[in-house]
Design a protein around this nucleic acid. Structure first.
Lengths: 353, 353
DNA sequence: TCGCCCTTCTAAATCGTTTTAGGTGGCTTC
DNA sequence: GAAGCCACCTAAAACGATTTAGAAGGGCGA
């Protein structure tokens, strides 16, 4: 009856099936294929029978629409870029995972970019500016010079949401935790345990809010407790396990009376610090109390377990994604929000529980 | 009441500059713009003066080519997808970072997909199949059912390189470390220290080579040492810190004489196991010797420090990227290779050093 | 027979690039 | 002064999807 002989001896190679091929096989136009596969078929009065033909044709050919073509035409990719500079810290993976789930629920796909260097990050952002890569950006942990590129992006109408911080620029929508309050609580906790020489290990690379807010909270707690700030008690280190270790050693290598407690930039560095103390033959919390920052799972598995300021990492990622998508879709532009943190007391601080 | 609330006047937010705009501003054709900005200008005899005009026009407009359009036309995205299911384990971040560097050196950009669930992974792979997203795939740590999709992708000429393993399918180009040998060395090391009841903690989720090869190496070492295999000494746990902890507890909760040493699936789980032992009041390595697998940095910061089988993570990522790119570009198809591992003796095994 | 409305589908424009096959004008060359 | 050749640039056709305006075909009332 119907001459259904597939006339495809020409390109017998592995050429990917296109909508045209599906159309040919189903005996309809490309338009019909597109409409039907996008669920607009009924709205356009296409017959159920036609639906079937198209759908089975698509299935037998294993047809999947070409992403570039679709994005080009729709001027929308349904992709969100999640950029971070510290993929090695599980903290970021957790935030990213939460963002991913939230985005998926709203029909977006997240792709993660960990450029690896500041230059590469800037390049990556510039690429985004051209369009056709993704519809928006969630950025977490960008370095300072990135600010410019971010601004450019955002000025050109490319949706950007910052997690925690983007350099000193406060004008982008942002989802953050209350770093200063967290640092204050951490420090205050140590002070309340009787410590008077409380040190702080900070991040040598960062200069923006992540660093300054913590420092401010630290100082605030000291002031509230009537303890004088002593800048020899603040040491910076690389934001790594080894960096935390080195910073702690530096702290103890100084002359003058050593600290009895330390509040560390994040849990990763705190793990490094714990190790430094261990190798120095010092006991935590007796010789030195330690409080971290982040609340990554690892903190519950250290020796001793790590008292820390837990961040709502899941919430952070989820909100970042939602805020961005709202922004992209024109829904009320969910204002910048600051999430609360929570002190998690474990063993490294020496508090009785 | 009149409906004067006119919807926002065509969000006239700076329409992105296109090649057409650059052409207009420079007073040349789009072709010239494209040729020049792609470095083909001279080859086509375009004047230096024209180069200047185009380049400065592009600069003043902040022009960046649209990724979707370019990809569509070129049938090439210059993007490589790195897919992994365990972004939370720093191990993967390290491999990904190395792949990223290698790819960048060859003009590719890596985007990381951590879909989060098997279903989402399959969906993501299906999307890749349509084309226009990326040119090839490096996959690390995929689950078993993914195999089918992978096969489909590869059959349709989409470049795929597997790191370590893709289910049971051995037909894809693959860069791996010698897991079996690593497991053998790890176990043999424990045996050589005099242990006779050596347990193994494995991954409950995986069923493919990552799990089987380790198991095989473990058994091989036992056989070589003339120790009978005892399946009550093999416990599976989730591939997380908590999973390692739980598995170790399960191991000790059994009746019968307990193991005196354990070889753990990876360092992350080993850290969990160390913690379990600590909370049980057992001393490592005296009450129980522990050897991990991976060589992540964290292993040098645990208490006690973790003896492990170090993987060339950097090399793994680099080779994966290079193999894929060679594949994509038609250069000799760099065969599947197996990289060597290395025993790193620290404190958790009890060896004298 | 015509006009009109439905129903069901399709033609064709479009998205922004890249790239091939020329086109134009000026200079030689005989 | 015609043919040929350069040197410099452009027109236009892709790439593969989406989407809008409208085309066929059929039924039906007048």
């Amino acid at each position: 009856m119907i001459a259904l002989l597939v006339p495809a001896p020409e390109t017998r190679s592995v050429r990917k099936a296109t909508g045209r091929d599906v159309a040919r096989l189903a005996g309809v136009s490309q338009s019909a294929v597109s409409l039907i596969l996008n669920g607009e078929g009924l709205r356009h009065g296409l017959t159920p029978a036609t639906h079937d033909r198209v759908q089975s044709a698509a299935a037998t050919l294993g047809y999947v629409p070409n992403h570039a073509a679709r994005s080009l035409r729709r001027q929308r990719t349904n992709v969100i870029t999640f950029m971070t500079s510290e993929l090695g810290n599980p903290y970021f993976a957790e935030v990213a995972a939460a963002a991913q789930r939230a985005a998926m629920a709203r029909g977006y796909v997240i792709d993660i970019i960990a450029a690896g260097s500041e230059a590469a990050e800037i390049e990556a952002l510039a690429r985004l500016r051209g369009g056709g890569t993704s519809d928006g950006l969630v950025i977490h942990g960008g370095s300072a010079r990135i600010c410019q590129e971010l601004r450019q992006l955002s000025d050109r109408g490319f949706g950007c949401v910052v997690v925690q911080d983007a350099g000193e620029d406060a004008s982008l929508p942002c989802v953050r935790v209350d770093l200063q309050e967290g640092a204050r609580i951490a420090t205050q906790h140590l002070l309340s345990l009787g410590h008077r020489r409380v040190a702080h290990i900070t991040d040598a690379r960062l200069t923006g809010r992540p660093r300054n807010d913590r420092l401010a909270g630290y100082r605030q707690a000291l002031t509230e407790a009537g303890v004088a700030f002593d800048d020899t008690l603040v040491k910076a280190g690389a934001n790594t396990l080894a960096g935390g270790e080195a910073a702690l050693r530096a702290l103890l290598a100084q002359s003058g009376s050593p600290p009895t407690a330390v509040f560390v930039f994040n849990d990763q560095m705190a793990v490094g610090a714990l190790h430094a103390l261990r190798t120095l033959g010092l006991t935590v919390p007796d010789d030195m109390a330690v409080v971290g920052f982040d609340g990554i799972d690892l903190g519950a598995f250290t020796a001793p377990t790590l008292t820390t300021i837990d961040h709502p990492r899941h919430e952070l990622g989820r909100r970042a994604a939602e805020t961005l998508i709202d922004l992209l879709e024109g829904t009320p532009p969910a204002a910048t929000c600051t999430l609360p943190v929570r002190l998690v007391v474990r063993r490294s601080c020496g508090a009785k529980t």
